[in-house]
């Protein structure tokens, strides 16, 4: 097990904004990213008001300590942001804030993807489309291989 930063440990021990919102609510956008087989699944939800500002954010995450910390931090950052501001959040910002080691960068990638998926889901609802958020299993594994510091280590 890796030595985590204090920030990861704090958010892991006392995660913020754990929970679920009604996915059928037209003001709620839901993003579910990752796959159980890869060891990470993030569910991130946003509640968006009529001005396009994120009023609330909730998450549930199956994954390691840094995956949980990344999603918790993402929900904190999302609150009060407009959708455009939220779209600008990048994995490197999360990784820097949490001082994630290279092998854990993919956790912040997942969090960024979950933010974007939640926003997309909300926007689809706005546009009257009804297709639901789904698990993106292949995407997770591709991400793992692409991501810096991952997939290239032997035992």
């Amino acid at each position: 097990m890796l030595q985590y930063s204090e920030k990861v440990l704090e958010l892991f021990t006392n995660p913020k904004n754990v929970g679920t919102m009604d996915g059928d609510d037209p003001h709620v956008g839901t993003g579910v990213i990752g796959s159980p087989e890869c060891g990470d699944v993030m569910q991130l939800q946003i509640l968006v008001d009529d001005q396009g500002v994120i009023q609330d954010a909730k998450f549930k995450t199956f994954g390691c300590g840094s995956a949980i910390a990344s999603s918790s931090l993402a929900t904190e950052w999302l609150k009060g942001k407009t959708l455009d501001e939220a779209m600008a959040i990048q994995n490197v910002h999360l990784a820097e804030e949490l001082e994630l080691p290279p092998v854990k960068k993919h956790c912040s990638v997942l969090a960024e993807d979950a933010i974007k998926a939640a926003i997309e889901d909300f926007q689809k609802k706005l546009e009257g489309r009804t297709d639901k958020a789904e698990l993106h299993s292949p995407r997770c594994c591709e991400k793992l291989n692409d991501c810096e510091g991952c997939g290239s280590h032997g035992e």
Binding site: M1, F12, G39, C64
Partner: peptide, 28 residues
């Protein structure tokens, strides 16, 4: 079931056990 091994070990920081989780090895 339904939880991940490394986060479980992190909760159990004062107990030395090992895990079959990918996250505990460098190989993922």
């Amino acid at each position: 079931g339904y939880i991940e091994g490394e986060s479980l070990m992190l909760k159990l920081r004062d107990i030395a056990v090992s895990s079959g989780s990918a996250c505990t090895s460098a190989s993922l």
